[in-house]
């Protein structure tokens, strides 16, 4: 069974792409055949993997799915880790969904073709709260939300939860974790304590704010590949372990993971 996880946030600059790239790398180290789908027209994940941001099938081909989309898959430099690159044209994805019947389930249908091939599919999502977000919510088994422990971030997380409740999406599959944490800041510590108290489903693992993670733009590698054993690599390792625990806890998913 393929597990589909989306790294999603309705707030920008929270570390979604770094999380998607590093978790995908951790999954392959654990022996899982993994596909990263870069849904963000900014193509940051594509850039991190040193792949050209080009989808030969275009947005239309992307939405239609099938063999055409399969041809766009690129092998990364890492064993068992593939990438469906992004393209600037994906900025039109949201309007393109409306051309199909049941537009909110189109993404799920598009990616069906990869289910036999991969153990894990990770979406690197753009900042969105419209039809693409609904497609992501429908297609994913898990929604991982990076949260910077700040007031604005808490606000957007609350917005996401109320959006889900209002539109009958299962909030049980939403798992947040703290990102870009600076433990020296009093506000970060207080916000984290408050959120752990008030919200269910927050993973007890956080990614610190580290220059090693920022260097990913220069190294163009997951941190565990460029600096194995570093604090950043260990933080993602820990996050991966917590993510696995959540998968195990879900009886509907593969217990062999």
């Amino acid at each position: 069974m393929t597990i589909v996880a989306a790294i999603y946030s309705n707030k920008g600059g929270v570390g979604k792409t770094a999380t998607a790239v590093n978790l995908a790398y951790m999954a392959t180290l654990a022996g899982m055949k993994t596909l990263v789908c870069d849904l963000d027209p900014q193509s940051a994940a594509t850039y991190y993997f040193r792949v050209k941001p080009k989808l030969k099938c275009g947005t239309k081909g992307f939405i239609k799915g099938g063999q055409k989309i399969k041809k766009n898959i690129k092998g990364t430099d890492y064993k068992n880790l593939d990438l469906l690159p992004s393209d600037f044209a994906l900025r039109n994805l949201e309007t393109a969904f409306y051309k199909f019947k049941r537009p909110k389930n189109r993404l799920e249908k598009t990616l069906k073709i990869f289910e036999a091939e991969y153990d894990l599919i990770i979406f690197d999502c753009p900042v969105t709260v419209n039809i693409l977000a609904e497609n992501i919510l429908n297609a994913s088994d898990f929604i991982l939300v990076p949260l910077i422990p700040t007031t604005l971030c808490v606000r957007t997380f609350q917005q996401l939860l109320s959006f889900c409740r209002k539109n009958n999406y299962d909030t049980g599959k939403i798992h947040a974790f703290f990102s870009m944490v600076d433990r020296r800041k009093k506000m970060h510590n207080e916000t984290m304590a408050m959120m752990l108290k008030e919200f269910n489903g927050i993973l007890r693992s956080f990614i610190p704010s580290l220059s090693q993670i920022e260097r990913m733009g220069i190294d163009r590698e997951p941190v565990a590949a460029s600096a194995p054993g570093s604090v950043a690599a260990k933080a993602y390792q820990n996050l991966w372990a917590k993510f696995q625990e959540s998968v195990f806890a879900n009886p509907g998913l593969n217990p062999d993971l």
């Binding site: 993997f49 040193r50 792949v51 050209k52 092998g75 430099d77 163009r220």
Partner: peptide, 10 residues
């Protein structure tokens, strides 16, 4: 031996 392109991608 990794054969690389201009982006140093294998």
């Amino acid at each position: 031996h990794h054969i690389l392109n201009q982006d140093e991608k294998t």
